[in-house]
Design a protein around this nucleic acid. Structure first.
Lengths: 239, 239
DNA sequence: CGCTCCGTTGAAGAGAATCAATGAGCGTGG
DNA sequence: CCACGCTCATTGATTCTCTTCAACGGAGCG
């Protein structure tokens, strides 16, 4: 494992440890009063993760939790024979891992090179248990995640391939397309398929259909331009 | 609304209000020290709900939360054109509703006649905010629900019809079949289909196949006897 | 230049949905 | 107690969507 993992050369109580943190104002730490930040900092460690590396395995003991500082990670569940479903994506400032539980229900794998602020679950649990503001923030985030997961259950259980792809594009556009001038997909076709519960071929065909219908353009492998947003939204909802 | 809803004739601080509650030891209230139970009791109301009645509507403002005292309720998400996906089921002692959020993401509808202990969201939020033990319990429950939802995403996105039905039967047997002598399904075929992201016909056909394969018996509409549990579990996992 | 990875496209097939009819319980009322 | 009607479940025939299998294409890179 050591060969895949690199620790930054600071850890714990550093002069500019959290102050300089890229997600200081957006991660759960933001809820803590200044005085409580120091003890949390002392149990946290920065770690870099290479794309493709898995931080937590489905079904294994829950030993780690973390804040995402930079990069993207996927949360996945798999069947015994290798079928995979992405059940969540963690971006910068998101919290990952399973506090207050014996085992992790899903794997966590880096989609891009990433950096996280890591805690052992035991230490984090103990800290959180004594800091209600932190638990409150965690509760709010977990409730939001649960809402998102349940919305996705509707997509996976009841929506057609076209609706699924359109829904994903609308979500991505909302997240990434500030200027309305198109955006870069942060993931490839296979991962789109793993999110949507489809095959890579079906995703590709649906994108092609939308392109031929003039709803979107695909100027590159990862590039998407939405030409007709209302049409895309209509596709996402009804059919 | 009044014609569908009946309030019990006590509410608030009653002599035996919470002490006699059927879920006193299992609901979130169980975490509260005796002294804190009284103020919570004072903002709670018992309500009876008829089967089929909807307590909360998807997308509407989140005004109510509740503990389930008795009965079963379904949490659902729907598409514009009426396709429905059950995203969760609440049993006695479960907590329902969306605290700390503007809107409810899903509808809550009684599957059986039910009784709940109801709070306005505003009052509950304020109470919870000042009772960390309660928020901690709520966090643990929400994390468990999130794990469950994500496991279900694998089922909905990647499992075959046979695997889905077998998975549901295993879950139900674990929950209901103490003696190994069979159990009564708490829901009909349509709701099984709505949970599994299938049609009623497909659920029926899969059950028939399992019956003909000798894995289960179906002595009545709602009755199930598992003859070959290992086979059923194998069906639930691989294919 | 050729290799590899990833995405696209095509043809064929499987699995589930849909459409349609039949059948079995169950409650109601005669 | 039985007949009726209603709801829910089963079964069959067909259609259709998505998957599977297979080949090709194109961009990036050594």
């Amino acid at each position: 494992m050591g060969m895949f993992v690199s620790f930054d050369n600071w850890h714990g109580c550093d002069a500019d440890g959290c102050g300089a943190c890229a997600v200081r104002s957006r991660a759960i730490c933001a809820t803590l009063p200044p005085g409580a930040l120091r003890p949390l900092r002392e149990i946290g460690r920065h770690r870099s993760i290479a794309a493709g590396q898995t931080l937590v395995w489905e079904g294994e003991e829950s030993l780690l939790v973390a804040n995402v500082i930079e990069g993207m990670l996927k949360l996945t569940n798999s069947t015994g024979d290798g079928r995979e479903q992405i059940v969540g994506i963690a971006y910068a400032s998101d919290f990952i891992g399973r506090p207050f539980g014996e085992r992790s229900n899903h794997s966590v794998t880096a989609l891009t090179d990433a950096r996280v602020c890591l805690f052992t679950r035991a230490e984090f649990d103990a800290f959180a248990r004594t800091h209600p503001e932190l638990e409150h923030e965690l509760l709010k985030r977990t409730l939001r995640e649960l809402d998102r997961a349940r919305s996705f259950m509707l997509l996976l259980g009841r929506k057609t391939a076209q609706e699924r792809v359109a829904t994903l594009l609308v979500d991505m556009a909302d997240r990434l397309d500030d200027e309305g001038e198109g955006f870069e997909l942060p993931i490839g076709r296979q991962q789109m398929a793993d999110i949507l519960g489809l095959t890579i071929e079906t995703v590709s065909r649906q994108l092609t259909r939308m392109k031929e219908g003039g709803v979107i353009a695909l100027p590159g492998r990862r590039a998407v331009v939405v030409h007709d947003r209302p049409a895309l939204e209509a596709m996402a909802e009804a059919a």
